[in-house]
Amino acid sequence: MEITVKVKRCNPQGNADCKPSWQSYDIKAEVGMSVLEVLLDVIAGVDPSLVCRRSCRSAICGSCAMKINGRPLLACDTQIIEEYEKAGRIELEPLDNHRVIKDLAVFQEPPWDEFDKIIPYLNEKDKDVAMTAEDEHAIDASQKCIMCGSCNSVCNALEMEKNYLGPAALAKAWRFVGDVREGKKEKRLDRLSQEHGIWDCVRCVHCTEYCPKDVAPLSAIERLRDKAMAYGIDDNHGAKHSTAMVDSIRRVGRLDEAAMTFKTLGLLRSIGMIPFGMKMEMHGKMPHPVVLPAIDGIDEVRKIMDKREEEKKKEELD
């Protein structure tokens, strides 16, 4: 099958505002051929100056992530004919949220720099702890990461805040925090709860959606938040926001926006919101600032919550 492959090329040679341009290659594809194979054919036969990273060809080394028809994919794990038939085109671009080195190769600061920030190795406990199959299961998904950068490339939080640790590093962080053998969980969680850590995530679910290895970074982040609060590390807006939600559910069974704003931001910042709140009030958008009626069966809610709190007290933190 004959296909035109369009590649967004850019060769900054150190010049940051290099303008990318599209180049087309007409190629022949056989059934079963991956996008990477086609690129290799182009490089060997037509244009050796075209650059893309590659190594394993089998979706495990993490080298070849790129944007294929708009979404991040591993070039070696994407069948070209299938993709072409689905999208009607093959357009290859470097990953978003990363600076381009050349053509399809991007700088790898995320995830490597972030990786260092999360203390990327196990801190053994003093005593030997044996791992069970269940313990393994708890961190299994986060262990599958191949550091391909796909998640970071689509992360909405990272798009706006370059200092955010990002989903790949946080998935890795859970790999340690979730490990029964780890001896410094609290210290880790404390660091992760600081600025640009776990609470920067805006829960856009892009990371989990596009991860080629089903690592589900968002789940890792949710687990880190859960653990951090269980350790009582809650002196930050993120944790306060969550806790306020829990209080609100306990009180009225539902979201009490006004009370949550107050609890999350504290008195002073909430007052700062008053002029704005008044504007919203004019449009009927400020919900019962004082008393929001509780749902029917609020007792049930409280019973369940009490029971869970009891359970939690028995769960050991280590």
Partner: peptide, 11 residues
């Protein structure tokens, strides 16, 4: 010549 985790051992 590649990032260490891209080495062939990974496969």
């Amino acid at each position: 010549k590649v990032y260490p985790v891209r080495s062939h051992s990974v496969a």
